[in-house]
Every structure is written in C-alpha cells, then in structure tokens.
Design a protein around this nucleic acid. Structure first.
Lengths: 183, 183
DNA sequence: TTCGTAGGCCAACAACTGTTGACGTTAGAG
DNA sequence: CTCTAACGTCAACAGTTGTTGGCCTACGAA
C-alpha cells in the first residue's frame, strides 16, 4: 500500500498528539506512536526528522478564541470559561501543552508564546487597558489552567464530578474579576 | 568512609527531591540522583529497593497548614495564599508533586490524597459546611495550583514578575469567594 | 585479637531509547 | 513500455536506563 507524504504525516501527527497528551514527552516513544499509526518507526523519522521536530509540530495550538467584543460585559467571563471547557473536552490538542509543558522546556516556551500572542491581545481588547492586559490575562490563565489541571489531569473527585455549567458558575465570577471589565 | 544507614537514606532523599522537582519522574535518573548525593547508584537500590519506592518516599508531603480558626474571616484567604507562596518558594517539596503529578500516576494519586486528607478538612472547619467542603476546597486548589503553575513552573512573565504581596492581593479575593466564608 | 555483619563500590546485564542505512516496491513521468 | 523518485520495511547501531551480584572494607561484638 502506498500513501501520499502529507497523508502519512497527518496520520503520524494524530497518533503523536494522542500519545503526547496521554503520556507526556518522555514516555511517548516514537515506536509507540508509530505502532498507533500503523507505520514503521523509521517512517516517522523520515517525515519529521527527529522526535523533537515531531513534538514541535504536534504542539501547534490555536486557542480559537471567539470574538467577544459584542458580548455583554457581564457574560464575557462565562463565555470564556465555556469556550475553554469545550476545547478541553473535545480533543487532546490543549492537553498536550499542559501534560508536557510541565517537564519539557520546548512545550513551556510554546505555552508562553500562546499566552502572549493569543490571550494577552484579547484581554487588551476586552478591557481597553493595554498596560494592565498582561497581568489580567495571566490571572485569568491561573484560574482556567488551574481548573483544567485539577479537573482533567489530576482528577480531583469534586472537580471532575461537576457539570460543565457548574464549573462556569463556580469560576466565572473569579475570571470576571481577574479580567476587570468596567461595566 | 562509613555512614549509618539512616544518614545515607537522608542524603539520597534530599538529592532525589531536588532532581524529581526539577526534572520530573522520567528524566530524574537514579544515576543522576546518586551523583548529586556523591553515592554509588547501586547504593540507592540497596536503600530504597527500586526507583518507584524511592519516588514514593520522596513524595511524602505535609502542607503544614496553619491553624486559621482564630483568624478574622476577612483575612483567612490572604493568610492561606501567603502560606502557600512561602511553602512554594522555600523548598522543592511542593514542586515535586506538581512537576511529577501531571505525568506520573503515583504522584497524581498522592496529590489527591493530600487534597482529601489535608485540604478538605481545613475547608470543612473554616466554613462549617462539611457537605460543601470538598467542592470549596477543590475550587481553592484550582486557583492556588493554577497560580503556582503559571508563576513557578511555566513562568509566564507577568505572573513571575509579581511580588508576593501583589499575588496575595490579586488572587486573595478569588480564594475568599471560593471558600465561601460567612462573615 | 578474631570474626561476622553491613555499608560501599565496581562491573555487568537485559531492556529500551532515538536514530541511521540499505534494500525492496510501487506509482507516475517520459 | 522504461526509468526514476519517493514510500515502506527490515535490521542494526550506539547510548542510556533500572537493576543485580560479587567483592572489598570498616566497624563492633566475641
């Protein structure tokens, strides 16, 4: 059987994302990823060059933050939390960064980049306070990443048991306050 | 040179805590830990049996939560945040769990145990609401662990740049609200 | 002193890792 | 058809890992 190069790459990338998200960088071996994709380990090397480069490709993350400028100020925080919960539960893209960013320097750098280029600008636009935006975006991150950590990664029972809307009600006000939107 | 068995164990344990906290479970090799302690790798095995058992020993964590029952209700949250910041910056004991708990099942289980046995009871005592205590303690964890993650592990620049008291001011109100203390 | 117990060190094992090179094999261009 | 370039597979490499057994040596009991 024969595939196009891009097809193979996509196949490998999907398996890699799953493995990296589930096991972290070190325990996700190239052999395991290749086995999941039904492909020879050597093929992975030919397509991506090295494990580092494969990982860098698997780390490409877009938060897909919705346009919240039209949202009523009082509902922005809830919408934000809801968006992240959906993104988190729908796929493993976000889980990669959290699982690997804690021990892998490349992933940590990538997370800082996502924060700076995707989250800070949104906070600046929403608050109309460019100067305070980095801190506000950072505080929002602490609350949202903290919830993801406790709920999905560490699986603290009380947090894992909450429904999605209960989570929105629980941390929405904190996020709202961190954003500091004038109403 | 000759040491008592307990002295050697303590020496190894200190080096192991440092390595596990800095590198996570997989990248902290027994050889590296032994080298840090100035001891032969085989000695580590003789003292602790296996890497898993050494790790389990290194994971023993006591939050040393202060007695907050006498504290005015309005200052409890700030005192709690301040306590965790101090614990975090003073040593590597807490960093072990966060760095390893994300990829290592044993460490994650340990974190859940610490949460259940040390944090939930305090929340129950402070709020006088035994039924809602697990959720309240969980919400507090999301905010405090989230801050630790962004500030110390991922090193988001805006969060790492804050002074300790600025952090207390920033997330204290959120923690206060999560605790839900009647005042 | 003599001797046994226990700490310390060395060398080696088997398993696994990322990575490489050589050798089929197949599709499409000429 | 023929030929070539790219995909796919196999086997092996060098390095690292946790782990083990044997040997040496120092200390305390006899």
């Amino acid at each position: 059987m024969r595939r196009s190069s891009s097809e193979t790459k996509a196949l490998i990338l999907a398996a890699a994302r799953e493995r990296f998200a589930a096991d972290g960088y070190e325990r996700a071996t190239i052999r395991a990823i290749a086995a999941d994709a039904g492909i020879d380990p050597a093929q992975v090397m030919r397509c991506f060059g090295s494990k580092d480069r494969l990982f860098a490709a698997a780390c490409a993350v877009d938060l897909h933050l919705p346009d919240l400028l039209g949202t009523p100020p009082g509902e922005i925080a809830a919408a934000l939390v809801r968006h992240f919960l959906e993104r988190w539960e729908s796929g493993e893209t976000l889980q990669i960064l959290l699982r690997t960013g804690v021990t892998n320097a490349t992933a940590a750098e990538r997370m800082r980049a996502v924060f700076t280029t995707q989250l800070v600008p949104v906070a600046a636009a929403l608050t109309g306070d460019p100067e305070g935006a980095p801190v506000r975006a950072g505080l929002v991150s602490t609350q949202i990443l903290g919830m993801a950590l406790c709920r999905y990664v560490l699986a603290f029972p009380p947090m894992a048991a909450l429904t999605r809307e209960e989570v929105v009600e629980a941390i929405g006000p904190a996020v709202h306050r961190h954003l500091g939107i004038e109403s």
